[in-house]
Design a protein around this nucleic acid. Structure first.
Lengths: 201, 201, 201, 201
DNA sequence: AATGAATGAGTTTTCATTCAT
DNA sequence: AATGAATGAAAACTCATTCAT
C-alpha cells in the first residue's frame, strides 16, 4: 500500500535495510529491537532480512561496519600530508564531530549500543583502534622529540575518549560542533593552561 | 538440607544478591543475563530476588546505584579543601583509576552495560554528571581567570571522557594505574605540550 | 478450567507429558507435531515441556526410551530358563504381539516415526538389536548343531522383521493376536512346509 | 551465463529433478529436506520444481512412485510362468535384495522416510501390498493343499517383513546380497529346521 | 522456458514473572 | 522466610510457496 512491494535490486534493498536497522537499533537498543520492528521500518518482510543478512547478529554487525566506515570517511580530509599537524588535527576534529552532529543515530549505534554487546566489542574496538592509531600518528608527527609509540598510544586513547565524551554531548544536541572543536583543540595543544585562549575567543 | 536455607538478615541478603547480580551482569551483559542465572549465583531462589528487588530492571538499577556510590566514595579523599587543586586532581585521578583497576566488574557494569540500556541512561548520566561537576569545580578553583561555568562544564566532560577511555584500558589490564594517572594529570595541566616533561619524569 | 492447574509432583508430570507426547507423535508424526499440540494434550503450558525435557528432540527421545522399555518388559516372561525353547518362543511372540495389540500408539511411535528420524535411528537400532539378540540366543539354544552366532544373527533379524510386519497388521487391527502368534511360530519352526499344520488347526 | 540455462526437454528435466529429490530426501529425511536444497542439487531454480511438481508433497509422492516402480521392475524376471515356484522365489529374492544393494537411496526413501509420513502411508502400503500379493501367489502355487488366501496373505506379509529387515542390513552394507538371498530362501522353505542344510551348503 | 525477489504462516525456544505451599 | 511448580508473552528463525520479469 504505502511505498509498496516493488522489486528492488539487491544493492538498494541492502541499504534500505541497513538504514532501517540503524534507525531502530539506535532508538531502542540492540536487544529491545526485534527483527519484526526492523522489517516493519524497512517496509519489507522479515524473511528478507534473514535472506540478506542471515541473523540478527550479522545484521547488527553490518550496521556497525557501515557506520564505522562512514566515520573513517569523515576523517579522510585530515589525512592530507601537505597539512600541518595542527591543521590536520583541526580537520579531524571537525570531521569527526561534524559527522556526529549530522548523524546522531550512527553515533549512538556505535558508541552506546555496540560497546555493550559482548559479541561486538571486538568489532568496535577495531574501529576505535583505527581512530586511536590515526591520532597517535598525528601526535607523533607533531612533536620534535619522538618518544616511544606506546606513550602516544595511551595519550591518543585519552584524546579519543575526550572526543567521544564531547561527541556524546554533541549528539545529544547540548553542544555546538564549533564550540566542541575549539575546546578539544585547545585541550589537545595546551591542556587546561590553554583555557585563557578559549576565554579570549 | 544440603547447602542450607540460612535465614540471613535482610541487609546481608541484599548485598549477597547485588554481588551476584553485578558479577553476572558484568560478565554476560544485561540482556544475556537471566534472573535464573543471578539466583543461581547468589545461591537463593528466584522468588527471593523478586521479593527483594521487584523486577530485573529494579535489580539492575540497584546495581548501578551501588556501584556508582562506590565510585563516589573512592573520590572522597580528593574533596579535602585543604589541598591544592593540583593535589586534588591527582587524588581524584588515582582514586578513580585505582578503583577501576581494583573493581573491573563495577566498571564494566556501569560503563559498558548501563550506558547501552535505554532505560538506564538517565541513571548513568546522573552519576556521570556528578563526576563532571566535581571536575568542573576543580578546574574552576584552579584557574585565576574564572570564566563562565559552561566552559568548564564541557572541558570537564572532555577530561572525564579521557579518564573513562583510559579507565577502560586499565580495566582491560592493558595499562598500569600509575602510568594512567601520570598521563591524565599531564594531559590535564599541559595538554600535548606537556608530553616532554612526562618523558623526563 | 478443565482438569486444572494442580501442582503435581515431578514424577507424575513426567509421565503425563510422555503420555501426551506419545499420543500426539503417533497420531501426527514427529515433524507434524508441534510442541504446542503436545502441551495442549497434556493440559500444561509449553514452558513446562521445556523445563522437563529440554527440547523437542529430547522429549521424543524420552518417548522412544520409555516405549522401548515397555516392550522389553513385555518380553520378560519369555526369559524363564526353565522353559523349553519352543515355550520361550511362544511366550516371546505372544508377549510382543500382545503388547503391540494393546499399545498401538507405542508401536507406531517406535516403528513408524522413530525409524525415519535420522537423529533417532541409533536409539531405535539399539532397542531393535536387543530384540534381535534375544531371538538369536533363543535360536542358538534350540538347535543341537551350534553353528556360528553370525548366522543366527541374520536369521534373528529376519524373524524380527517378520514379526514387525505382522505386528504392523496387528496394530492396524487387521489381524488377531492369536492368529499372528500361531503363524509366526509355525514359520519359525517349519517355514512354509509347516503350512499344513496351520491348515489343520 | 555461467553454469548455463539449458533448455532441456521435459522428460529429462523431470528425471533430473527426481534424481536430486530422491538423493536429498534419502540423505536428510522428508522434513529436513527443503525445496531449496533440492533445487540446488538439481541445479535449477525453485520455481521450476513447482512448475513441474506443484508442491513438495507431490514431488515426494512422485519419488515414491518412481522408486516403487523400479522395485517392481526388478522383480519382473521372477514372474516367468515357466519357472518352478522355487526358482521364482529365488529370482524374486535376488531381484529384490540385489536392487536394494545397488540402490540404497531408493530403499531408504521408501522404507525409512515414506513409512513415517502420515500423508504417504497409503501410497507405500499400496506398493507393499503389491509385493505381498505377489508373494502370496507364489506361496499358493507352490503348495498342493491350497488353503484360504487369507493364510497366505499373512504368511506373505511375514515373509516380506523378513525380507525388509534383511534388506535394511543389506542397504546398510552389513550383509552381502548372496548371503541374504540364501538365508531368506532357507527360511521360507524350511524355517529354522532348515538351518542345518544352510550350514552344510 | 526460467528465475531472482518476496512473503505469510508457523515453529522452537527463552524469559521475566507469579502462585501455592 | 523461602521455594518448587507453573505460565503468558514474545523473539529469532525457517520454509513452502508465489509473483513479476
Amino acid at each position: 500500500m504505502a511505498g509498496g512491494t516493488k522489486r528492488l535490486p539487491r544493492a538498494v534493498r541492502e541499504q534500505q535495510m541497513l538504514d532501517a536497522a540503524v534507525d531502530v537499533f539506535s532508538d531502542r537498543g540492540f536487544h529491545e529491537t526485534s527483527m519484526d520492528a526492523i522489517a516493519a521500518k524497512a517496509e519489507i518482510s522479515k524473511p528478507m532480512l534473514y535472506l540478506y543478512y542471515g541473523s540478527k547478529d550479522e545484521l547488527f554487525g553490518a550496521c556497525i561496519q557501515r557506520e564505522a566506515l562512514r566515520f573513517v570517511e569523515a576523517l579522510e580530509p585530515a589525512g592530507d600530508p601537505n597539512l600541518s599537524p595542527r591543521e590536520q588535527l583541526r580537520l579531524a576534529l571537525s570531521g569527526f564531530l561534524g559527522f556526529v552532529g549530522a548523524n546522531r543515530k550512527s553515533w549512538m549505534v556505535l558508541y552506546r549500543q555496540a560497546i555493550g554487546q559482548q559479541a561486538f566489542v571486538g568489532q568496535v574496538q577495531t574501529s576505535r583502534d583505527r581512530l586511536v592509531d590515526l591520532t597517535a600518528q598525528l601526535l607523533s608527527s607533531s612533536t620534535k622529540t619522538p618518544g616511544e609509540p606506546r606513550d602516544y598510544g595511551l595519550m591518543a586513547t585519552a584524546l579519543v575518549g575526550a572526543g567521544e565524551a564531547v561527541a556524546d554531548r554533541v549528539a545529544g544536541g547540548e553542544v555546538e560542533v564549533d564550540v566542541a572543536v575549539d575546546l578539544l583543540e585547545s585541550l589537545a595543544w595546551r591542556g587546561l593552561s590553554g583555557k585563557k585562549k578559549a576565554d579570549t575567543a
